[in-house]
């Protein structure tokens, strides 16, 4: 984790760097973003609640079944579909949830990035991905500085993975947690149920970047962060929703605020 720039002396209650490794999807409600429901449809298979009870763990090269419509994280050969990653596969729904993986920017993703270069033409953002994002100077009135944390939307990704970002706004104060992006859908939950539960219980502002960076500010942010880290650890287990609900209800472990 790190502080989203040190504007004002934020009291950092929760310490520790969670060096997130990998990437994911979905986002949290924010002022400019389109309604959660609409986003979900566009990225349908990427948001989820608990894995189906009868999901099986598959590894690269493992046979899933006859090839049907293309499923992310699989490949087909001679009419059969195979997994390309370690993941949970639900034969009934045909969905494959990867358990690891790096974030690759995709159109319309809402991401939380850090300004790592300021150029004449615009700003380059680190997206916790092998691919950086770029905000053109023409796309924003703001002048951002090195190290500032921004939330923005992916406007365009070309064939060589140049990523253009738009609708950028600064996230000031608060804290950033990094989690593997493959776990972000679980933080959002089915129909945003999980993130809403977190926001209601903690009254914190929470912005979830599909790339696995989550910004938390205000309210009971320590509890929000504790809950998010618990979701990260237990993302692919059963009964998580209940456990998170219990954690939020109990107010979390006392952390000497």
């Amino acid at each position: 984790m790190f502080g989203a720039k040190r504007f004002g002396k934020e009291k950092f209650e929760r310490a520790g760097f969670r060096g997130g490794r990998r990437g994911g999807q979905q986002f949290a409600p924010m002022p400019q973003a389109p309604a959660a429901g609409a986003e979900q449809e566009r990225h349908g298979p990427e948001s989820h609640g608990e894995p189906a009870r009868k999901s099986r763990l598959v590894v690269p090269g493992e046979l899933l079944g006859a090839a049907g419509r293309p499923i992310p994280h699989t490949f087909t050969e001679k009419g059969s579909a195979y997994s390309s990653v370690v993941g949970l596969f639900d034969d009934a729904s045909g969905k494959l949830i990867p358990l690891e993986g790096v974030y690759t920017p995709a159109l319309d993703d809402v991401v939380v990035g850090v300004v790592v270069a300021v150029r004449f033409a615009g700003f380059t953002l680190d997206l916790k991905s092998p691919y950086e994002g770029f905000i053109s100077g023409k796309d924003t009135r703001d002048v951002f500085k090195l190290g500032e944390v921004l939330v923005s939307r992916v406007k365009e990704v070309d064939e060589v993975r140049n990523v253009d970002l738009t609708e950028a706004s600064k996230l000031e104060g608060g804290e950033i947690i990094e989690i593997p992006s493959v776990k972000v859908p679980r933080v959002i939950g089915k129909n945003s149920s999980m993130i809403r539960m977190l926001q209601d219980a903690t009254k914190s502002e929470i912005v979830v970047g599909k790339n696995g960076r989550i910004w938390v500010k205000g309210g009971n942010s320590a509890l929000a962060i504790e809950a998010i880290l618990k979701i990260e650890r237990e993302a692919h287990t059963q009964g998580l929703t209940d456990r998170i609900s219990a954690l939020l209800g109990s107010g979390g472990q006392s952390r000497g605020v």
Binding site: R18, L57, V59, V86, P180, E232, R233, T237
Partner: peptide, 21 residues
């Protein structure tokens, strides 16, 4: 190899909270 990969995630499943990354 397959067993080693599956074991890694089965652990996480069973214990529920096998610590963070």
């Amino acid at each position: 190899q397959v067993a080693a990969l599956k074991e890694r995630y089965a652990e996480k499943e069973k214990s529920g909270a096998l610590g963070g990354e």
